[in-house]
Write a protein that binds this DNA or RNA. Sequence first.
DNA 1: TACCAGAGGAG
DNA 2: AAATCCTCTGGTA
Length: 770
Amino acid sequence: MKTLLDADYTTQNEKAVVRLFYKTESGREIEEISDFKPYIYVLPREHGLERLKKRIEKLNSVEKLETVQMRDTDHEIEVLKVTLDHPKNVPDLRPQIKELEECKEVREAHIPFAERYIIDAGLVPMDGCEALDLRIASFDMEVYNPRGEPKADIDPIIIISYADNHGLDKVFTYKTVEGLDLDYLDVLKNEEDIIKKFIETIKERGIDIIVTYNGDNFDFPYLKERAEKHKIPLSLGVDDSPVKMEKRGMNLGARVRGRPHIDMYPVCRQIFNLSKYTLEDVYLEITGGEKKDIRVGEMAGIWDNPTTEKFKELLEYAMSDASSTLEIALDILPLHYEISRITKELIYQSSRSGSGQRVESLLIKKAFEKKILVPNKPSDRVVDERQRTTYAGGYVVEPKKGIHDNILLFDFRSLYPSIIISHNIDPSTLDCECCPEDPYRSPTGHYFCKKKVGLIPETLEGLVQRRIDVKKRLREEKDPKRGRFLEVEQQALKVLANSMYGYFGFPRARWYSKECAESIAALGRKYIHQTIETVPNFGFEVIYGDTDSVYMIDKSESKRKDILKHSKSFLDRINSELPEAMELEFEGFYPRGIFITKKRYALIDEKDMLIVKGLETRRRDWANIAKYTQEKVLNALLKDKDPNKAAKIVKDVVQEIKKGKMPLEELTINTQITRGMGEYKTEGPHIQAAKKAIKKGLEFKQGSIVTYVITKKGASISDKAQVIDFVEEGDYDADYYVNNQVLPAVLRLLEALGYSEDELKGLGRQTTLS
DNA sequence: TACCAGAGGAG
DNA sequence: AAATCCTCTGGTA
């Protein structure tokens, strides 16, 4: 029993050796593969194969030349498989071959060597890891920051905290005060020693996976620079190699050889939809518990003049950073083990890759098994071109505005995946010559081969079948721990299946096909239209629908039991006319709902739970007070059916705001900086607040979420916007929060109920503003 | 007042 | 570095 944690290659005696880093039952194992060689495929121009072969033979670093039969999109071809002596020579050889007159194209020259080996050898990263009790450690650092953002060339690390899943908690520092009693505290001599001690601890504890919160872009780069300053090698690798900072787009990735480092910050941003992603927020989301927090502005002061109480707080805070990061990791890592196993990516990769990359890794693996040539990545010019062309997506029904009772919801189970499978939608089956008579011809005029299953439908079918199998095992599983793994696996399979459609339309995709993407969306529209047209025949009325769902009410029945019976016959009728892999499902019955506009509505379910879609309550860029008040008003309208109660709620809140005593945490607005700070044509409040904060020493960049308040001082809203760190309790613009936050959010609901504007003024603005 | 840029949600 | 559809705000002319 062993599990593959990491892989790379080294050069020994001028030969490339693939190294596979395993965790075994007894410890660690590094397997070395020295007989594997890199190769690329060369597509000849017409009748050029033999001449091309002769020319390539003469080139340096070519070890072997074979003619092989491969599939390229929709046809079989003979291509040259060129085996090289060493992966480092691929970048040189590729353009030399590309320039040859008889060469049409070079393929698969950019697949990293170790990953190539994993694919070809059929290895599955992280397979079996549950059985091995992986040793997982987290660490976090506190840094001396007397001037705001710390600078690694000047400001030392003052604390390193450490926690692992085998019971060791440590805080390494080099200062202490009288009367401290913390069992995890380890006071050393200086910064150099805490760095050394940290490295030692990771090694002595035999750690398999290192986790951090923002380690890619803060802790590791900072630690590396400080270690270099002290001339300590940051040799955390299992082969004692130093931590390597890799460039990944705009950000960095910290790679520890053989002991994968996983940064939970980007992972959490991908998995959760939160207003912001501080460690405290994420910890609350996962465990429901509060985490110790201190104001970072206080840190340098405490370090310089430590009182027993404050210094203890600082150390406790440091410890909780490491232990909560570990707790988050233990909760989320199983998902990433599964993603790694499904996509065959190393966990270092899969924990940092997006949907597009994951789908692509899976397809490359499948293409290898089916002897299909992998398309090259598109050039920047092609990507630009693809970005300029768009296509039509899902259909949204204009809602019947206002309150409705006894609402039924139906939706298509996995609409797009089921369309891809039933219509065999794939670049290789697109408009094929053998079967133009497609009874299911897509409304865009495209048709798909009926004889040969495409790569993507086949891959998707594999995911769907595997998920059905996992769900079956899940039903039979008695052990809750194994049950959780199966649940996570079926979720991961579902997410991956659902991202296949998006992949077709992704401009950087190797298997990009706008025709496929638009055919899928067009067929989706066809099926939902078909469904909507059938609705009146059964005495129902559609009140709303979006892409794959239909909300309707029953005009002929009034009892729940009769309504549900009635809907069954509707369902049977629709499903009898659908392709086999497709199904419309009954999704729910809602006693009451309010529909405002497209993509904005709220429902009460049969357990009296409020479900809100698209409204301010759901948005991070609205103040809590507006979101919370809107939610209360929704409950008054839908549960209590009492508009007067709703009016009272609004009046009371408006009064509270006007008193000037509303806590700041009810008033903060979170907005992300989605582009580079210099790229804005118009700068909204969050950008102007961020700019002011940058001048005062805080760091904001693309991707940061700005938490700000509209204060009293300034002319425009943007002038008044200040990042929360600089706002005093009570300094807020009450008129803004009444007129631009609370009232718009609640008046929209009441307007949808048909109250006239005059009535609403009576309820809200005039009485309260006077 | 009309328009557009920007953000974030739904499915 | 997965897609499109849609609403709404605040800046700008």
